[in-house]
Every structure is written in structure tokens, then in C-alpha cells.
Design a protein around this nucleic acid. Structure first.
Lengths: 360, 360
DNA sequence: ATGGAGTTCTGTATCGGTACAGAAGAACCG
DNA sequence: CGGTTCTTCTGTACCGATACAGAACTCCAT
């Protein structure tokens, strides 16, 4: 015996086998292949297991032998408190978890920390596959996960060669919202965007910054707005773009407060998420601006809270739960060894409610 | 050879060892004990590993041998979308994740599904320990996790023999809020509580139901309110208790709308969370009641959004992030093999803001 | 009685690592 | 120069299970 640690003696399949005078294989079969042994022996084994408080085959050993652990790693771009503050993210996650559960797979979280990001946990984690949720392409997690050579599915971004991506037509969505506002007669539009890059910038965005957007979703939505303006023959340079470092109501409210305080205040704001739009509503209320009379606002995602907002939000709808489930389905297929390719982009549609109206 | 599967040949430590003419142990040491071999050989090994796109020792096999996987299971009472809708829960979780990360531990989620709850994933998961977050004592997850005989820490509830519990003085907290309102002169109090039991009940609560509260936190906070009333010589039977099945703003708003529509409308509502209190604010606004002029409202948790609410909430503060970290610390100690006991209950204090005032 | 099909159980190779004891040689020291 | 100490590397037992081939036995039809 090489090891000398003296723990309270673990109960294993072997212990049970010895106790009952059967082979290890039979005890294993009692758990995994009930048809391989008589019902009587099986009950006997399970009873004795309970007596010895043996909780079943060790998941790690089983995993090693079978080549599967039963969990999937989820890579997140932010600390947990932020990552789940967006109801849209939660809906996606819910769909994902639901789908994974059909194969008994759990979700293991890997959240980015603002300071000193360390990918070692990703490198050493026991998982059967990965979901990359909206990361920038140069994120350390992405590299680490790719190196593992395991099944991997991307949710929204970044596009990765060889990995299926589940996304929506962001450009079309943003264009829909933009053209809706232009059709209403708005002249002065602003965009409230979430992260263009991972540097924590907030507030007005310079033209240079717009050239170097590293978050693909942000870039596509921005392009959608430009396309909408172009369709109406407007000059893209008139567009005012402001950025929040976090996709949540409070950050948005702060940034929106500045935006609405400007002399050249816009008459309509295209927001890249419902959370951001809710923030604009808050800021508008604080500034005694009436929505939609003084200000039109559009959201993106069509979360439950968009419909419940005051006023209810006009927003770009996307199938959140279903897309989450789609990611799960693809990943499960990959884990089963099937080969899959990226599905068509999810459909978007404009849900018109009462946060938009012609300018006064 | 028993197995006959023909996969693209995996690269393992052995492959590398063979290639380079060294022993498996040395390759292992290159990863885990750099001091056990010359720097030159180590670089050579790592370089060749990269060439063969070997991502490092298999986490499962390493886990089996070492007796540790590097992840901790988190047991949740609700689907993910609900579990993380409360900022207080997210703050706790953040603290937990932060602490776990110091030992390179990740979090694996096990969320309850409303229908057909199945504890098999919990039984078969490869984790080093468990965090039980606010479950009822008879929840299948709890039983399953306990059977595993692994390190386990309880967050808030249920009290479990032998498992350390990290909680706060719920009773004192609720009593503080209650006495604050009574001191202001309120005569007619209502309580807006989250789940008393797991049966999805919503709305007014019968006296019988109050006798059989299965969620310990809810029970203690309720008792705190009763204690507050008693301290002011009030009859507990006058208290109006309403319940939401979900701890979120929208459910709360719906239930509160009914409450505020009653003939015997209360002049103050003690809410068991900030989320619930925010729901009351929403309902009050919809009913054209002014807070605090027509209605006083107290929250519980002192989340960031409590301070940003309109009006800012008077609420019972508790150290959310720290408590999460505390859970992590205890669990890490248990995993290291140390024995720990439940720490003292976390301190609570009343943060008085502008959602409470004397009745009109 | 014979052969074939089921049923029930066993033996052993294997999954991919890590821990530990110790071998071999270099370096040091008085 | 003999002995001690380092450094660097190896051999092997072991972690706890599962897959597979096949043994032993029963049962049944011919």
C-alpha cells in the first residue's frame, strides 16, 4: 500500500461485494442494469447498501470509466450578480437548463471577475461540454475552453470556427426598431448600447470607438440602426450613441439621465435591451419627461417586464427560452457524438406597445 | 482488449511519456510539481503537449485519484429564472462564488423544477460539497445531498443536524421593521410574505396556514412581526397576512393590488423582502396611493435597488455578500477536512429611508 | 437425452491520472 | 576520499468504477 492516509474507511462497490459474497460487477449492475441480475439479489444489495449508507457508485469513478461526468460548463462574461440581473439572460438560461436536464446534465458556472481574470478553473473543470454565453472573442475563457477540445456551443457571440452558434438576426432587429421610429417621424435619434468593448467605458461614444466594437452583437445591432437610417436617407453622423458598461436598469438610468439632460436631447432612444430601456424610462420620469409624448423608447428582447413597464415597451421580440433550449439540444447532440452545424438565426419581430409615438 | 470503441485515439499522459521517452509520473509532475523535474525537461514536455494539443491531465481521472473534483453543488428551491431574479440572492451567490474561487472551486447548479422534481442529478453529481440555499426541510434535494455524506453548508434554511448553517436573526429583523412602524403610529399593519409553504398559494393567509409554515425563514420573520406587535400591546389577530408564491416584484405587485383595494386597507405593509416591497410600491402607484403619505412600506435585505427605489425603501439590512462568502469559507474548511460549527447569526439593522412615515 | 435459448452471475482489462518509495547520479563537505 | 545531501527521474500500487466475454445453471422443445 502506497497511500497511508487513514480515513474512516470508505464504502465502495467492492466493500458491498465482499460483504454479500458477490462480485463487484454484480453490485454495479444492481445500480446500472437491473435486468442483469435477479430482482431478489438486487433488493438485497440495495438494502445492504442503505444499511452501510453507501450512496451509490462514485460519480467520479463512474465518469472516468464512462467518459462522461454529467455536467456542462457555462462561461459568463460577468460576475454572477450581473450575469443574471437581466431577465433575458435568465430566460435563456432557463431554456438551456431545461433542455440539459433531459439528459440529466447540470450546469457549472464560470463567471468572469472584473479583476485578475483567471482561466485555470476552466482548464481543470470536469465537464462534458461548454456553453459560451456572449463573450468577446479574445476572452481567456474562450481560449481555455477551445483548448480542451470538447463539445462547445456558442450563444450569441463570438462566432468561432467549428463551433455551432445560436444567434438571432441582430441587425434586422435593430433596423426594425429604428425604422419604426423613423416612420413615426422622429428626427433626432439616440442609441443606448451595452458594452462595445470590455474596457468599462460609459457615456457618449466617439466615432473611432464605433469602428472598433469587439462585441459582435453590439456591432450588429449598431449596424442595424445605421441600416435603418440609411433606408430613410438619413445621415448616420447625426446619430447619438451612448454606452453603458453594464446591461442593467441602474447603469442605464444613470447614462440616460445625462443623455436626456443635453441641449440636443433626442426625441427617441433605441435601446439594445429591455433593461436599458427600463433605465431610460426611469431617467425620463426623474427628468419629468413623458413617455411617449416627450420621448419615445424602444427595447430589445421582449422580456416579461417589458410588457409590465409603465408605459409598456415597444421592443424587438426574440424567442429567449427556445433559443436556450436550442443551445442545450445542440450541445447534447455533440456530446452524444453527433455532428451538428449552426442553425438558422432566430427570428425577430417588433412588438409595438405604448412607449413609442410620433414626436410632439 | 475488452472495449472495442475506435475513437480518434486520445492523447494522455502516457502518450506524451512514450513520445518523449520519460515516465508517466514525470509528465504528471510537469503539470503538478514543477520542482520535481528540471526546467528544461518541463518545457520540453509542455511544448510537445501543446503540439499534440493535449490540454493537460484529465480532470476526472485526477479528481478520482485526488479525491476532489473542484466544484460545489448549489441546491436551489426554484427554476433558475426565479432563483436569480432576486438581487439579494444574487448578492449572496456572488459572495459565495468569490470565496469558492479562492480554492479554484466552481459552482454547479441544481434547480428545482415546478413539476416532476427529480433528485437523481443530485445523487449522481460529481461535486466536493453542497450548499443548500433556502430549501424546505422536506425537499428531495436535501435528502439526496445528505445521503451523499459530503461536506454541506446550509444557507438560511433548513436547520439540519450536523450541518453548519449561515443565517441571520430573522425574527429580530422583522421585529425592528414592525416596531418602527408602530412607533410611527400605525394602527393597521399588513404583512406581505413570501412562501409559507411550497404549494403555490397566493393572497390572504388563513390562521390555520400560519400555524403550519414549513419555510423556517418565513416563520421566523412572521414571529418577529408578532413579537413587535406584542411589544406594543397589540392584538396579533388584527394583523393581515398575504402571501406571494414567488419572491419577485411582479407577483408582489399583483397580490399587493388586491391588498390595497380592500376596504380595510392597511396603512403600512411589512414586506419580507425588498423585491416584495418594490412590488407594493408599483401597486401603490397604480392605485394612486402616495408612499409614504398614504401608505408606509418596509423591505428586507437592503439591496442596491432598495436605495434607488422611488421613494427609497426603509428596509432591514443584512450583510448579503459577506454571508455568501461565509458559506464559502465554511464549505472550503469542511472540504479541507476541518470541522466547523455554525457561526453566530448575521447582524441585522434597520435602514430608515423615505418609504415610511406617520399615518396621515 | 440433446441441443438451443435464456437467465444470472463472475473475472479481468481498462478508464487516466497521482502518491510514494526509492534508484541513480551529481554536488558538496570536512 | 568516503559519506551525506540534493536533484532528477522511475516503477508501481491504487483511486472506484464499468464493459465485455464467457461460465454456470435452468428451462424447454424435440
Amino acid at each position: 500500500m502506497a497511500d497511508t492516509s487513514r480515513e474512516p474507511v470508505r464504502v465502495t462497490l467492492a466493500t458491498l461485494a465482499r460483504e454479500l459474497g458477490v462480485s463487484r460487477a454484480t453490485v454495479s449492475n444492481a445500480y446500472n442494469r437491473p435486468d442483469q441480475l435477479s430482482a431478489a439479489l438486487r433488493t438485497k444489495i440495495l438494502r445492504r447498501a442503505r444499511e452501510l449508507s453507501f450512496a451509490g457508485p462514485d460519480p467520479l469513478a463512474r465518469g472516468l470509466r464512462r467518459g462522461r461526468v454529467g455536467t456542462v460548463g457555462l462561461l459568463l462574461d460577468e460576475p454572477l450578480s450581473y450575469a443574471f440581473s437581466d431577465p433575458a439572460a435568465r430566460a435563456l438560461l432557463d431554456g438551456l437548463a431545461h433542455s440539459l436536464q433531459e439528459d440529466g446534465l447540470a450546469l457549472t458556472l464560470f463567471a468572469s471577475q472584473p479583476s485578475g481574470l483567471d482561466a485555470t478553473p476552466v482548464r481543470g473543470a470536469a465537464v462534458d461540454g461548454w456553453v459560451v454565453q456572449s463573450l468577446p472573442i479574445d476572452h481567456p475563457f474562450v481560449t481555455a475552453a477551445l483548448e480542451r477540445g470538447q463539445p462547445l456551443v456558442v450563444l450569441d457571440q463570438p462566432a468561432l470556427p467549428g463551433a455551432p452558434l445560436v444567434g438571432i438576426d441582430d441587425l434586422a432587429g435593430a433596423q426594425l426598431a429604428t425604422e419604426h421610429l423613423l416612420a413615426l417621424g422622429h428626427e433626432r435619434l439616440a442609441v443606448l448600447a451595452f458594452k462595445l468593448r470590455g474596457d468599462g467605458h460609459r457615456g457618449a461614444v466617439s466615432p473611432g470607438r464605433l469602428e472598433a466594437i469587439t462585441y459582435e452583437v453590439t456591432r450588429r445591432r449598431y449596424q442595424g440602426v445605421i441600416a435603418g437610417l440609411a433606408a430613410y436617407g438619413r445621415d448616420p453622423d447625426e446619430l447619438l450613441v451612448v454606452e453603458t458598461p453594464h446591461n442593467d436598469v441602474d447603469s442605464a438610468a444613470a447614462v440616460a439621465a445625462e443623455l436626456l439632460g443635453r441641449d440636443d436631447r433626442p426625441s427617441a432612444v433605441v435601446c439594445f435591451s429591455d433593461q436599458l430601456a427600463l433605465g431610460v424610462l426611469t431617467a425620463a420620469r426623474a427628468a419629468h419627461l413623458r413617455v411617449p409624448t416627450d420621448l419615445s423608447v424602444t427595447g430589445f428582447d421582449d422580456t416579461a417586464e417589458a410588457a409590465l413597464a409603465d408605459p409598456p415597451l415597444t421592443t424587438v421580440a426574440q424567442p429567449l427560452h427556445d433559443r436556450g433550449a436550442q443551445v442545450g439540444g445542440l450541445l447534447r447532440a455533440l456530446i452524444r457524438g453527433e455532428s451538428v452545424s449552426s442553425p438558422a438565426l432566430g427570428a425577430v419581430a417588433l412588438t409595438v406597445r405604448r412607449s413609442t409615438a410620433p414626436p410632439q
